[in-house]
Design a protein around this nucleic acid. Sequence first.
DNA 1: GACCTACTAAACACCC
DNA 2: GGGGTGTTTAGTAGGT
Length: 988
Amino acid sequence: MDAIQHVPNDTKPAELSSYDINDHMMEENDVETQIGALAAGQAQGEEDVGMEITDTATSHNDESVFHGVPSIEEADIINTNFESQPNEEQQVQGIQEEHVDDAPSLELPDNIDHEDLSRLLELDTKQGGEIFDADEILEHAMRGEAEVSSGSETGDEDEEDKNESGKDEDNEDEDDDEDDDDDDDDDDEEEEDSEEDGNDKGHAGNEASQQITEAPSRDGRLARSNSVEKDATVSPKVAASDAEDIRTSSVAAIPGESSGSSLKAQRLFKHEDEHSPAAILQERGDLMRRKRHDSLTPVMFQQHEILMSQMQGQNSIDEDGVQGQQGENGISLPDEQPTISAYARLDFQSFTFYVQTLHVIIGRRSENDFSHKVDVNLSPSKSISRRHAQIFYNFGTGRFELSIIGKNGAFVDDIFVERGNTVPLRNKTKIQIGQIPFQFVLPDQEKGEQPQKSPEPPLSAGPEELDSKVKEENESKKLLEEIKTASPVVSDTNITLENDPAIAAAHAEITHPKPIPAKPTLPPQPQPQPQPQPSTVKRERERRPPKVPKKVYSLEEIPPEYRTKPTCSYSALLTECIRKYSSPKGMSLSEIYAGIRELFPYYKYCPDGWQSSVRHNLSLNKSFRKVSKEGKGWLWGLDEDYIAERERQKKKQAEIAAAKAAAAQERLEQQQQQRARKAASGSSSSGGRYDGKSNGRQQSISQTLAANRATDKKSSMNDHQRTMKYLQEQLIILTKNRKGLSNQTIASILTQALAMTINQVTQAAKNKGISGNPLTALMDKNPQHLNLILAAAVNAATSKATNGKVKQLVNMPSSSENSNTQIKTQTPSSQTTKPSYSSATNSNKTNTSAKGSSSFDPTSLSRFFQPRQPTRVSPPSSSSSKPTIPQKRTHDQDGDESSTSDDSPDSDDEEENTDDGNKGSGKDDDDDDDDDDDDSNSSASSGDDDDDNHNNGKDDKKSSNETASNRGEEISNVLGAGSNTDTNDSQV
DNA sequence: GACCTACTAAACACCC
DNA sequence: GGGGTGTTTAGTAGGT
Ligand SMILES: [Mg+2]
């Protein structure tokens, strides 16, 4: 127990997890304080760091408590503490044991293929990079949180880094990214851990630490064993006892998936974030941290076990928890198995660090820096960067890889690897960072039967099998998935899970000790596992038979962030997933499922059914192609050519659109000028509409694709185009006097103003229950009002764009007189109504609208509309009922609660399109901001991009402003967006 | 109301 | 033969 208590998973923050070599030797100082901070309070007293931590952990251990989950804060604190702490921390993270070199040899199969460094390098950049990308986001979030919670530490780190070297900074950045990854991993782990912890009571959380230190107390192990059960299947290999451990590990494995996912989790978070804003971010951060903490623990694959066992029972966990000591090694319980579950271990001269998470950061910890997560603190030597290297599991390659972040590089198998390079790690790979040599050791796979078997690996767990068996993984993965699902909560949600009793219970089940060794099984809740299983081990499958139906989560069990369906389409999901996790060989369906779960935890909790959609998408969407056949099915990959083609088209169209827009603007300006001069009364016709089309919309690929269709729509477009044209013209007029603002600024202002106008009008109309195109209606019926709105929007946008330097670009008509002069010029292009600007009349509305020129007041619109109805009947009520904002298939949201429901969104479909992907893109927008960008890939976009457009339409409404503003694109663009996004197609 | 897009579900056929 | 996989079709829902 103690041991378990020692370090609660929770407590461990990612950082916590970190293991300092130094720590061992060094002090534990800070920890205490931090610990004290821990709110839990429990801990504080306790002890030394370790204890304290433990305490918290302990408390947490109790499921209830645990669930209570240490608030993020606590977790964070803890983490920090841990960091500071030496021993425990060490334990936590990895498991460091002192080690006896002798560790039983792990036999590692070399599943991992060794590749040439060069090769590796290549890989690194690619794959590794991607992974990290996701993390980056997380990191940001994390940092933010960190800052908030912890305080400044992050800054410290950075500073330190800087101090160290400019490069370091870079490294740090990288690190950050990595960290993110780590976080993710950790998170996953944490989840797992948490679960385990919950079950184990602390152990789980501790796992990492426990493992590390402890030899695992039996209890812990037992608990694990429970978890192990799940794992069991996974890694049969290990001896029975080991098996148990393994199981635990497997459990972890399960989590592993999650863990694996955890990496992605970040992204998920992002997505989630999308759903929920800042709060979510914070949560993420918290999660991240927590996860991290937890992450320390986790996993476990059999390998670990194996390792452990091999290592000797050494570690074996003493129940007691010697945890910390364990590091030492040894000991242990043979039978039960040592239990440390880990994906791999790092054998240092004086200690051993167990890699229990999918991402381990190796570097130099600065005492005050909590922000940086350093799982393995090599030395205070400046020659070692804070984040000098990171070991992570590359799902794409299915193996662990070492990415060198530190400026001074490192030696891998006696080959110098410069910073920025990534090298694959295989069993017994020698690594030297600074003056510290160590060896990367994988657990024997043999024992486990298949090295990887562990299921999860696929995405999550990767480690296990890393290499080989991807396929097998599939199965295992599935298992894992299931397992995950079972435990899911844990993993993903950490937090929530904690909260949820049910979850806890589930966890408990999972962890339950009972089973011990042999049976793994997963427990997902239902799990029958205990069943007698064959003795042996691991055959999860055996257990599976009972196959646990996927657990149905209650709302409470699902973390709030994961209750809503991601807004992105399946095509976007798939694109992102494949981009991020796929190996050159492609991804199997099960891997894809796992990847999606990782990226979007929502899918961990929702009822099955989405897989069908995924398959449907893969088949129909041309962006996805079969890469190679493996096992029952194919390995899927992205059809980059197709995607690239689409991209090209997209760009092309964008360029064309831009050109048109520019031309149109000029024309308009000229025309307007002429008009002004001539003062021609009826000038109405502006001359060619400059293509309404031109509105500037850039056609996206999808659009292009859809172009054909678009034509059909043209008719409908007319109004839209006309309206856009009108708006564009008006804007141009309104911004004639640029007041010295740069074109860019003006463009931004125009964009924002347009977006604001569209949004406000649209929303106001919706609120009023007006369907149809309110802008057009307004333009036709009350152009003055529209002009005022535009003017107000322009001023608001101007103020915003210039940070208040220029509050007005347009002189708002005090009341009646509008500044209309300008406005007057205009007329809605074609049609009809020409606004009689002259009158500036409508002061009322105008005024309101005008309100601030600076302040844009949409409300005025409502007024407008109300009366207006004539034009459209708007049953206000009904419409009103609807959410004003057109969310895309927000249903989800609505449904959010119902996880099951579907919500969802978007998607792709392609159908015809062939395109496939196009559709998805819509979301992208959102994503774009977030992810895409980051990823750059735009990935999502890529495949889906097209879709995006479509989506855009929907989104646009919502975010039109944002997008527009963000992008600061040209007016035309904005228009395009604003109007109907979909229109894109239409545009054509 | 017609069309689209996106999603879901189900039916089938394949393959392991 | 079960189950995963891949394809196809039908139906639905929200949006334009
Ligand atoms: Mg396809």
